[in-house]
């Protein structure tokens, strides 16, 4: 019979197995292919994040709009009208709103990814799935929130433009803005997973981080432009990799700000280093994290 012939075919040992579990994977191995296979799960996580916001706040989805609006109004009153900080000649409202919306994306990515391990310990302890699915889903759900908020911001831009405010959006830079977004996502993700890996040992670290992130905002040109800082102090602000990104965003959509390809290159390299380091640490921690819960 034919079957006798078939049984003779034996696969090479390595091909026979679907999976081999070993102690230490290669140092740098993100297994993005595997993550792609789990894309349904990533989308479910994204949905879960939204459902949580829906169900846990009274205002539901409107919260996404109210948050930047209130922050912008507060900043306009305090920093614009009371402290009278300069705004590169832009309408205060637009100046603060652009800073707030852009900053919020970075800050949310960082804050939420730094909770990855602690918040999902229950899930991680029961089943295997690529752990990177969690931070990646956070980037995506924040991106959706960002799109909503940014759209809201654009509405205000159009409103101001219609009222005759002179704004000079720079189309080249607007075309470049997805790269800026990617850089922020990378920074948030990289720093977030580094922190999340450390929180497996130090549970209280994330409070420190939340606090640190809100302080960092003041070292980023969200409420003041870089041009308002005396030349010989600018390097301090520019050492913050978020600075060139926020300024570039503002320059792209409102036409005022300090942009310099060298600074952006610095931010980009910073992002690459942080993502690389983050993956390295994450890779190590995810394998035995569950033993320490």
């Amino acid at each position: 019979m034919a079957s006798t012939e078939q049984t003779k075919i034996s696969l090479p040992a390595d091909q026979y197995w679907d999976m081999i579990i070993e102690p230490q994977r290669r140092l740098f191995d993100l297994r993005l292919g595997e993550l792609w296979k789990y894309r349904d799960l990533v989308m479910l996580f994204v949905r879960r994040d939204f459902v949580a916001v829906y169900k846990q706040t009274i205002l539901g989805p409107i919260w996404y709009l109210i948050q930047p609006l209130l922050t912008t109004i507060t900043f306009t009153v305090i920093f614009g009208n009371i402290a009278k900080l300069p705004t590169d000649g832009l309408p205060q409202f637009l100046f603060y709103m652009s800073g707030t919306v852009v900053w919020a994306y970075f800050a949310d990515c960082l804050n939420k990814t730094s909770n990855t391990f602690v918040q999902n310990a229950g899930l991680f302890g029961k089943v295997y799935f690529p752990r990177l699915a969690v931070p990646v889903s956070i980037l995506i759900s924040n991106l959706i929130a960002f799109a909503i908020q940014f759209g809201f911001f654009i509405l205000f831009v159009l409103y101001f433009a219609a009222r005759g405010t002179a704004l000079q959006p720079d189309w080249t830079w607007i075309a470049f803005s997805p790269v800026l977004l990617l850089m922020m996502a990378g920074l948030g993700l990289g720093l977030g997973i580094i922190v999340s890996s450390l929180t497996t040992k130090y549970r209280d670290l994330r409070f420190l981080v939340t606090f640190g992130v809100s302080l960092l905002m003041y070292a980023t040109p969200v409420i003041y432009p870089v041009s308002s800082i005396p030349e010989n102090f600018q390097w301090i602000i520019l050492a913050n990799p978020m600075t060139p990104i926020v300024e570039a965003f503002r320059y792209a959509f409102l036409g005022a700000g300090t942009v310099n390809p060298g600074h952006l290159l610095y931010s980009f390299s910073f992002m690459i280093v942080v993502v690389f380091l983050g993956s390295l640490i994450f890779n190590r921690v995810e394998q035995t994290f569950m033993d320490t819960v």
Partner: peptide, 16 residues
């Protein structure tokens, strides 16, 4: 270890 919730310290498991 079989379910890949935690990693082994040494040795390996092959799964089909």
């Amino acid at each position: 270890i079989l379910s890949r919730v935690t990693a082994p310290t040494s040795g390996k498991i092959k799964i089909k």
